[in-house]
Design a binder for these strands. Structure first.
Length: 465
RNA sequence: GGCCAGGUGGCAGAGUGGUCAUGCAGCGGCCUGCAAAGCCGUCUACGCCGGUUCGAUCCCGACCCUGGCCUCCA
């Protein structure tokens, strides 16, 4: 039985979707006005892990993650770069997909763009106006009347009066209540605009998720995810919009991933302390990043530093070193050996996706492989198969071990390395250890580590940098 | 100021009312021509103060500190 921490109740709850074959999952994605950074990478990898695990557990999952392609930030950015909004967002979506693939993140089943759902959004707003939950203002905007929705604040644990007291929301003349939020924004000159019953304009940010989630998924949605920073007001507003319009519960379980931190504060574009995904992929390989991202629980803050990423690389290498040279599992029956390990891994993951604990199971499997690899090679190979299968749920251990450890790339120095090793082998045969050590040092100078195995065989791998 | 979350060994990071997390780093041993990798062992961690309990890092209360949200934000 999987249990999930539901942000709304702040408790772990049994995960019991009404239809196991069609779990409804919606995640708030990214706004495409700039390259994504490691904070977005965490969101992408965490929910990639969630989907992989649920599918491993036999659930059918329909995974929808939106792309915001019309927004207050996109418009000025397009003006800066001197291109149209459509051109900017198309370009950024392309780069986003490259980043996603670079991280080894599977594509969701649907990646709807906001601009493709104007009709649904307008219909939703009309319903809200009809039902008295929204009102058109004289300035052409349409606002949601927060006070009309009694459950407003339930998700994030806020009360309207408290919000008003501490409110930093700018007072807009047109709003009846400072907490009311825009469903529709009247077009300003030069902005992208769509026709609507309230004149030309564009949608507010929150309405797109309500429209796309209710259009593409069956409500109540089983799991709705997003970054912790979206809990208020974005998700609160989504609930208010969706439930007021449909008159039914919107989401069963809310899942929020913690934020990536740099030093003492969160990584954010507004703070300028971010590393983009593509920059990160240039410095660390994808699995090192995933290992780091999944090495702490998804709800905890996650600290970024070069030293922590180096630790992740080292840990991952330990797993690959255990896998190296194992060969395939001989047959199915030998795979029986892995069942207890599967059980422990699943117990960890069933408990609100406890990936750190799941990783510890992987490390213990690696140690067991190292213990038995000489005495019981078949058992070691079977364990290796299990280790790779479990690693795959986290998007790890998908490389060939030697390729990973050697970082085999386009560089053609492999031949040169092999020649050095052969020379050294001859030197060792004649017990010319001074020459053997000299060659080893020479290779080390090129970042190549040598490991002598039994029967004169020598393995090599690349040093971590 | 309000609302949340959290403070675990050198670092990272799980977890539990009374045996071990795990990884990295360090130290000792085995293995090795020497190394590396690996295995074995080791390094007596749970912010502070009270309380409950036979017993608390784990439960309760106060305090201190940190982060997030309260404005765009994954």
């Amino acid at each position: 039985m999987i249990v999930l921490f539901n942000s709304r109740t702040r408790e772990k709850e049994p995960f019991d979707p009404p239809d196991r074959r069609r779990v409804q999952l919606y995640v708030c994605g990214v706004t495409v006005y700039d390259d994504c950074h490691l904070g977005h990478a965490r969101l992408l990898v965490v929910f990639d892990m969630v989907v992989r695990y649920l599918r491993y557990r036999g659930y059918g999952v329909r995974y929808v993650r939106n792309i915001t392609d019309i927004d207050d930030k996109i418009i000025p950015r397009a003006q800066e770069t001197g291109e149209s909004v459509a051109s900017l967002t198309k370009r950024m979506i392309g780069r986003f997909h490259e980043d996603q693939a670079g991280l080894g993140v599977h594509r969701p089943d649907e990646e709807p763009c906001a601009t493709e759902y104007l009709t649904a959004m307008i219909a939703l707003i009309e319903t809200l106006v009809e039902r008295g939950f929204a009102y058109p203002a004289p300035n052409g905007d349409v606002y949601y009347r927060v006070e009309r929705f009694p459950a407003y604040g339930a998700l994030s644990g806020r009360r309207l009066d408290e919000l008003r007291v501490g409110s930093r929301v700018e007072v807009e003349e047109a709003k009846r209540d400072p907490l009311d939020f825009a469903l529709w924004k009247a077009a300003k000159p030069g902005e992208p605009a769509w026709a609507s019953p309230w004149g030309r304009g564009r949608p507010g940010w929150h309405i797109e998720c309500s429209a796309m989630a209710t259009t593409l998924l069956k409500t109540p949605i089983d799991i709705h995810g997003g970054g912790q920073d979206l809990e208020f007001p974005h998700h609160e507003n989504e609930i208010a919009q969706s439930e007021a319009a449909c008159g039914a519960p919107f989401v069963r379980c809310w899942i929020h991933n913690g934020l990536v931190q740099v030093g003492a504060e969160k990584m954010a574009k507004s703070l300028g302390n971010f590393l983009t995904i593509r920059e990160a992929l240039g410095r660390f390989d994808r699995e090192t990043l995933r290992f780091w991202l999944l090495g702490s629980h998804y709800r905890s803050p996650l600290f970024f530093s070069d030293a922590l990423l180096a630790q992740s690389r080292t840990g991952l290498e330990r797993l690959y070193l255990a896998l190296r040279g194992l060969g395939d599992a001989p047959n199915e029956s030998d795979c029986e050996e892995i069942h207890p390990w599967l059980g422990r891994f699943e117990a960890a993951m069933d408990d609100d996706f406890n990936t750190p604990e799941a990783l510890s199971v992987l490390f213990e499997m690696a140690r067991e492989i190292n213990r038995v690899r000489d005495r019981k090679p078949a058992a070691a190979a079977a364990l290796g198969v299990g280790l790779r299968r479990l690693g795959g749920i986290l998007g790890l251990l998908e490389h060939d071990p030697d390729a990973f450890l050697r970082r085999t790339g386009p560089d053609a120095d492999t031949v040169w390395i092999e020649q050095r090793i052969e020379e050294r082998r001859k030197a060792r045969l004649t017990r010319n250890f001074a020459e053997a050590d000299r060659i080893r040092d020479e290779l080390a100078g090129h970042g190549i580590l040598i490991e002598d195995g039994p029967e004169g065989r020598t393995l090599w791998r690349r040093d971590r940098q």
